[in-house]
C-alpha cells in the first residue's frame, strides 16, 4: 500500500532522512521506533506531503506521491495524526470534526461526524466544548477521530501516547488494535517502543536518519540488542 524507496529528506543543510526504504502492506500495523531526532516525524511528514523528499520515491496505492499537497493525499485516503496532536483549540469538538470532514461530500458530512463521534464516548460528552479544554487523552482521541473523518485507507500516527498518563496510554494502544481489527492499515511512530512493537505486525528502527533494524514486531520487541540499536554506539 505504501512504499518508500531510498527516500532522503533535508531541511536546508540538514539531512534528516538518509536513503530510507520501508513498506507498509494492506491491513498491517507497522511500528516505527527510534530515539529523538532519528527522523521518525520527518518520515511521516514527508509521506503526508508536508515535506518534499530530495531524492527517492514514495508510492501510495501504486502511484508516486512525492511532493503531493497534503489536501490531495487526504482525498486519496492517507491521513496523518501529527505529533503534539495539533487539534484546533479554539474550535469545539464538533467543529474540529467538521473541519476534518472537509473532504467528505457535503450531504454525507453530517452523518460522518455523528458516525465518528459515536466511536468515542468521551468526545460525545464534550461535543460543544472548546478543544482547548480537553485533557491530554481526550485531545489525542479527538486527533485520531479527526483523521478517521476522511475514512482513510492508511493512517499515520505520530507519537500518540506522548505526555499521557499510563491508563490513557493503555486506551490508545487498545485503540490501535481496534483500528487494525477494523481492517485499517496503520503506520505508528511511538516512543513506547516495546509496547508498540508487541502489538505491531512488523517494526522498523530508525536512528540518525537511517534504518538500523527491521523485522517482525514481536521479534524486535524481545531482542536484547534493541536498546543498543536504539541508542547507538557501545561503551
Amino acid at each position: 500500500m505504501l512504499e518508500l524507496a531510498d527516500v532522503t529528506t533535508r531541511y536546508g543543510a540538514v539531512t534528516a532522512l538518509d536513503a530510507v526504504s520501508i513498506h507498509v502492506d494492506e491491513g498491517e500495523l507497522v511500528a516505527l521506533v527510534g530515539p529523538n531526532g532519528a527522523g521518525k516525524t520527518t518520515l511521516l511528514n514527508t509521506v503526508a506531503g508536508l515535506l518534499t523528499p530530495a531524492t527517492g520515491t514514495i508510492s501510495f496505492s501504486g502511484e508516486r506521491i512525492n511532493g503531493t499537497e497534503p489536501a490531495t493525499l487526504v482525498r486519496r485516503g492517507l491521513a496523518l495524526v501529527p505529533e503534539h496532536r495539533r487539534i484546533f483549540k479554539d474550535l469545539t469538538v464538533e467543529e474540529n470534526l467538521k473541519l476534518a470532514g472537509v473532504t467528505v461530500a457535503r450531504r454525507l458530512r453530517r452523518e460522518r461526524v455523528d458516525e465518528v463521534g459515536s466511536l468515542f464516548a468521551v468526545l460525545r460528552a464534550k461535543w460543544n466544548t472548546n478543544a482547548g479544554f480537553l485533557s491530554g487523552g481526550e485531545a489525542q482521541q479527538l486527533a485520531v477521530a479527526r483523521a478517521l473523518m476522511c475514512n482513510p485507507k492508511l493512517l499515520l500516527l505520530d507519537e500518540p501516547t506522548l505526555g499521557l498518563a499510563p491508563t490513557l496510554v493503555d486506551a490508545i494502544f487498545e485503540l490501535l488494535v481496534t483500528l487494525r481489527s477494523q481492517g485499517r492499515t496503520v503506520l505508528v511512530v511511538e516512543q513506547n517502543a516495546h509496547r508498540a512493537l508487541e502489538i505491531a505486525d512488523r517494526g522498523y528502527v530508525l536512528r540518525s536518519g537511517r534504518l538500523v533494524a527491521e523485522g517482525l514486531g514481536s521479534d524486535l520487541a524481545g531482542d536484547p540488542q534493541l536498546f543498543e540499536a536504539f541508542l547507538g554506539g557501545g561503551l
Binding site: 489536501a71 495539533r86 474550535l91 472537509v102 473532504t103 473523518m149 476522511c150
Partner: peptide
C-alpha cells in the same frame, strides 16, 4: 470553521484536507 482552524494552525488544517 476552516478559516478559524487555519488561523490557529495552518499545517494542521492542511493535514485535514483544507
Amino acid at each position: 470553521i476552516a478559516v478559524r482552524g487555519a488561523a490557529e494552525d495552518f499545517d494542521a488544517a492542511r493535514l485535514m484536507g483544507v
